[in-house]
Amino acid sequence: MNLKQLASKEERFVSGHRLCPGCAAPIIVRLTLKAIKQAVVVATATGCLEVSSTIFPYTSWRVPWIHNAFENAAATISGVEACYRALKRQGKIRKEIKFVAFGGDGGTYDIGLQSLSGALERGHDFLYVCYDNEAYMNTGIQRSSATPMGAWTNTSQVGSAQLGKKEHMKDLTSIVAAHNIPYVAQATPANYLDLMRKVEKGVSIKGPAFINVLSPCPRGWRFPHNKTIKIAQLAVDTCFWPLYEVENGVYKINFDPGKNKKPIREWILSQGRYKHLWKNRGFIREIQEFVDRRWERLKQLSSMG
């Protein structure tokens, strides 16, 4: 499929929403919903996406959509899916319906982790898409457990005693993979065919599926709003955010830059949230080592087949 064909596909999430220019979340949502051929019901956690797309009496959602609260998108969609199974068994519904939950990193890595873990373990037939913009952007850029080390946020400030966030980000994709669910993947909106293929796979497999999608945020990451896709691609090319999938426990890297792997310095220089580190070689080296270590580990896992 090329971009032209993609653009002609039915829009299930339409314009008129109030997300920022350059926000990756609506791109991720549109691609996700375009990739699903069947009828779909969507749940969304409280966050940028929810508050900006459903300001009463308007909605950008052309599919049945539910928002309940911040920490419970997974539990909420599990209730919807359980009801579907009950009504289908009774013959009250015949149509095939798919179930998707969207949550930001706050609603997924942090406050919603228990709800997500429970829904995964219970084996509900749904796809959870985390749009990971690496901080609490909706409340005004506070650090989350997805915020990378060194990044400035309003609660991981830069000063003489501290240089942004002190800790590395949580590896949520691995945590989800440890639930031994049928399908787990990482994706970005830059690699849109890869993302759509993963969505298609996620909804076609019976049981829970999870896709962690890096969602560059011009406001929080401090970059011009026409650079969203470039920055997403840079995350892949530096192996900061590798494209990979875990299908029934088998790891597969979907894109290996090989010799063209770019240094993490390029990623750090692309965003103002790292501005205080631009000349800090020691810090950049530390982050490079972290990225390399994770990339090598991922290569080992995928070579195990």
Partner: peptide, 10 residues
């Protein structure tokens, strides 16, 4: 939360 989802589902 699941009750809210299921009740909204119908």
């Amino acid at each position: 939360s699941a009750c809210v989802g299921a009740a909204t589902a119908g």
